[in-house]
Structures are given as C-alpha cells and as structure tokens.
C-alpha cells in the first residue's frame, strides 16, 4: 500500500502568493467574461456626451465643467463597480457551491479572500485607467480645439498683446488636461479599494449578492454623507442627545469615505501635496488590513 507521506509533508506556507494570484487571475477572467467591462462602453458614451456639452460659457469654464463632470462620473463608476463586482463574487461562489471545490484544495481561506480582493482591485484599476485615458483624450481634444479657436479670435484684429494671448491660453490650459489629474484617479482608486474590502467583509456575513450590494451602497453613502450631514442634522435637531450619540456611533463604525474624495480639489486644479497622498495610501492600507482581518474572523470557521 503506498503512503502519501511525501505530499502530506509538502510545506504549507501560511500564505501562498501563488494561490492568491491564481484566484485573483480567476476573478479577473470571471469579471471579464461576465462582461462587466461593458459598463466602460456606457462610460465612453457618457464622456462623449459630456464632451459635447454646449454651454454658453467661457472655454475655461466649460473645460473645467467637463473635467469635473467626467472625473466625478469616473469616481462614481469606480466605487459602484467595486461594490457590484465584489458583491457578485463571494456570495455567488457560495450559492453555486464553487467554494466547496476551491476550499477542498489546499487553499487557505485568507488566500481566497485576498485573491478575490486583488482580482477586484485589478479590474477596478484597469477600468479606471481606461476611463482616465478616455477622459484624457476627450479633454485634451476639447482643450486643443478651444485654444485654436481662442488664438484665432484673439489674433484676428491684433487688439491683444502677446502676453495677453499667452495669459488666455494659460488660463485654458490650467483648466485642461494636466498630469496631476492622474492623482485624482488614484484617489478614486483608493476609495474603491476601501469600499471593495468593506464589501468583502459584508459578503462573508451575507448570503446573497443583492443584500450585499444594497448594504454596501448604503454604508458607502452613509460613510460619505456622514461628515457633511451630521452638522446639518445636528443643526436641524437642535443638537439633541440622541442625534449626537448616533452621529458618534456612525463615525466609529462606518469608514469615512468622504475623506477619500480629495480628487475633487485636484480636479479643480489645486496643488497636490504628495506627503498627504502618501498618508491616504497608508490609511487605505489600514482599512484593507483591518477589514480583511475582520472578514477572516468571520470567514475562518464559516460553514456553508
């Protein structure tokens, strides 16, 4: 009788990156083949529509509006996509009992969760990059059209000095496509990463995708509005004790998503302090680690 001692003795590392990567790749394939990327087409359509905004405003203002709307939409798509795709994954594996076959292979549950998270993050990253390129292309195009128009108009009757023309072009460029906008995309990515890990956490509890999606969106909205709404609400309720306590509890339990909206300022053309962005990275990492640990706590001895 042969003994399987050799295989049994194979080292079992606490975390096999290869396994994580296999699951992440699988997730990526799954999301691609589920045609989730089709939403990018919707975004492309939207960007084109935004680009053809015809507002009776100055070119600078029009560019800034186009930029705000397209980056705002990008941010929205990123977090929504992160929620929906994450929520479709784990509960679905559970419902379909695909999880049985995966976990009956030498796969640790932490590897499974990490793999799913990475898969979603890769997909969100790709989508954001594509959306960024789309927006970048569209904004640059509009910018060049405006500059050409303005140049033609300003040079026509020679009323403006070279410096005035240069100032005007600079004004338009300031509201056009600038490299710092990449950081705005990264901000959206960080936000999506945090909501993805929160969704993973929720889906370890939940039994259906729909439930996970609804609760995640709710948490996102609360986490987003909390800072803005609490002062409004406190004011409305004349600072009642109940509301005060509730505001505190929400602040502690729900991630502060509004903090991750710092892309707003970048899109408006503010200077990007890289040290702060670095801190936001750290905060995101903190959220990911803590929520993964909590998910693992639930998931570790979860029975299906």
């Amino acid at each position: 009788m042969s003994q399987p001692s050799a295989s049994l003795n194979r080292k079992a590392p606490l975390l096999s990156l290869r396994t994580v990567w296999t699951i992440a790749r699988g997730t990526l394939t799954q999301l691609i083949r589920m045609r989730t990327f089709y939403f990018l087409l919707a975004f492309a359509g939207l960007v084109v529509a935004i680009g053809n905004f015809n507002i009776p405003e100055t070119p600078a203002k029009e560019l800034s509006m186009i930029k705000k709307v397209s980056f705002g939409t990008m941010d929205l798509f990123a977090w929504l996509f992160a929620i929906v795709s994450t929520a479709l994954l784990i509960p679905r594996d559970l419902e379909d009992r695909t999880l049985y076959t995966i976990l009956s292979k030498p796969v640790r549950r932490v590897e499974y969760l990490l793999g799913k998270l990475f898969g979603v993050l890769i997909v969100v990253g790709i989508s954001l990059t594509v959306m960024y390129l789309l927006c970048g292309f569209m904004i640059s195009f509009r910018e060049s059209v405006y500059i050409a128009e303005e140049l033609a108009a300003m040079e026509k009757d020679g009323r403006y000095s070279n410096k005035e023309i240069r100032d005007q072009i600079a004004l338009i460029s300031k509201h056009g496509m600038r490299p710092e906008l990449g950081i705005a995309v990264i901000a959206s990515f960080l936000k999506a990463a945090v909501i993805a890990v929160v969704t993973i956490f929720l889906s370890t509890f939940a039994s259906s995708s729909l439930f996970t999606i609804i609760i995640s969106i709710l948490i996102f909205l609360i986490g987003h509005a909390h800072n803005m709404a609490s002062s409004f609400w406190l004011h409305q309720s004349d600072g009642s004790m109940f509301v005060q306590q509730l505001v505190k509890v929400v602040k502690i339990l729900i991630p502060d998503f509004q903090l991750f909206s710092f892309s707003e300022g970048i899109v408006l053309g503010e200077v990007v302090p890289y040290a702060l962005v670095g801190q936001m990275f750290l905060l995101t990492a903190g959220y990911i680690i803590v929520f993964l640990l909590l998910s693992l706590l639930v998931f570790a001895d979860k029975e299906f």
């Binding site: 709307v69 705002g72 509005a225 909206s261």
Partner: peptide, 11 residues
C-alpha cells in the same frame, strides 16, 4: 450632494 456627487450636483 450627500452621496458624493457634489461636483455633479453643482454642475
């Protein structure tokens, strides 16, 4: 506005 669409609402 509360849902993070501040810029979009403003526009």
């Amino acid at each position: 506005t509360l849902g993070g669409l501040r810029s979009l609402v403003a526009t």
